[in-house]
Computed example of a mutant assay.
Amino acid sequence: MTLDLHGIIPPLVSPFTADEQPDLDALRAEVRYHLDLGVHGLCVTGSTGDGQMLSVDDSVAIADTAVRETAGQVPVIAGIIQDSTREVIRYGKAIAQTGVDALQVTPVHYLFQPDEERTIEYYRRVAEETGMPVVIYNVIPYALIPATTVARILNEVPNVIGVKQSGGNIHQLADLLHMNPAGGKVFTAVDDLLFPSYLMGAQGAISATLTVVPELCLQQWDAVQRGDIATALELHNKQLPIWRAIDGPNMTPRIKAALAMQGRNGGHSLSPLTPVSDTERETLRTAFKAADIKVTN
């Protein structure tokens, strides 16, 4: 399959059993749910998938399950959230054996940050030594890669094929889209501003809202592609309260609660993430009702 990343690429949750083992049956069901709706790709083991908490064995098991269940219907991206070039490459080589189409890699982010040249070399080494296409995951608030550096990486490093621009809000995304790097695609992960991101030229999205309400996000993407701005804006106003309801320090437990309300199984969350409160559940229910999303429990 020729790698064509574009459009709606939901970052899936990583379901766990009560004893904190990957629940691969629940993951298969989520993969199938999204494929049946017609998403353009899937991402696993990112921050929505608690990638920072996963062992290499967990990451491989989750990626392998997604690849097998997808069976080539759409591209599968696997996230790596580690804090050294050595560890990223170790994870990347192991995950590459599953047949994923690309890796999504954060910058290193614990306390100390490399300079621009070391950041470029970091992505160069990851792409070369894993032999995989790489998407930059620019999300860490205190280790944000400036738009100018992202553009350099995309233009100068072979096999770095895109960026998921999350950190720095829409201003960083606007700067990056204005630079229009020829070496890779720009995906938005600014959840409350997906609609204007598309209008500015983002070539798709990889963000949590897509996982919770993929049907609304697909409808919005299609509306923008056909120039139906009124419909896209209406869908934005439905999506926005849902994003506000899932955004928070315990975001992945909130997302799993949101899936459960729709009759989907996101599995258990990992310790020590904070469980969802009754107030948070009610906020989710209210947002779903306003967006005409059916709640089953």
Rank of each mutant, 00 (worst) to 15 (best):
F187M: 09
V224T: 05
F187I: 07
E234K: 15
V163R: 00
G183D: 07
M200V: 06
A182K: 15
S197K: 07
V224F: 01
V160I: 13
S197H: 09
I242D: 04
D222Q: 15
V224I: 14
W221R: 08
A182G: 12
Q219F: 02
L194K: 03
L173E: 00
S197R: 05
D228I: 11
D228R: 08
R244F: 04
L194M: 09
R244G: 05
V160E: 01
A245P: 01
V186I: 15
Y198N: 05
H171L: 11
C217Q: 14
T209V: 15
N169L: 05
L173F: 01
L199I: 12
V213H: 05
V190I: 14
N159G: 00
T209Y: 10
L233R: 15
T231E: 13
D228V: 09
G162A: 10
M179D: 09
W221Y: 15
A245E: 02
Q165N: 08
D192R: 13
D191L: 01
H178A: 12
L210S: 14
G184W: 03
I161T: 06
G162K: 04
L199E: 08
N180I: 02
D222E: 15
L193T: 03
W221N: 08
A174H: 08
L193C: 09
L210Y: 09
L218F: 05
G227F: 06
L210D: 13
D192C: 12
I170V: 09
G201T: 10
S197L: 10
L233F: 11
T209C: 08
G167L: 00
P181H: 00
E234A: 15
I170R: 00
T209R: 08
G227T: 10
Q219V: 04
Q219W: 04
C217L: 07
A189G: 09
M200Y: 12
Q172T: 10
A189V: 04
I206M: 12
T188K: 01
K185Y: 00
C217S: 14
L176D: 01
S166A: 05
E215F: 02
V212Y: 03
V186S: 02
G167E: 00
Q225I: 03
D191Y: 02
I229M: 13
Q165S: 04
I206T: 01
D175G: 02
L218C: 04
Q165A: 03
P241Q: 09
L240F: 07
K238A: 06
V212A: 06
L210A: 14
P214V: 10
T209S: 12
V163S: 01
Q220Y: 09
L218S: 03
V163C: 04
S166W: 01
G184M: 06
W243Y: 12
A182E: 14
V190Q: 10
S207I: 11
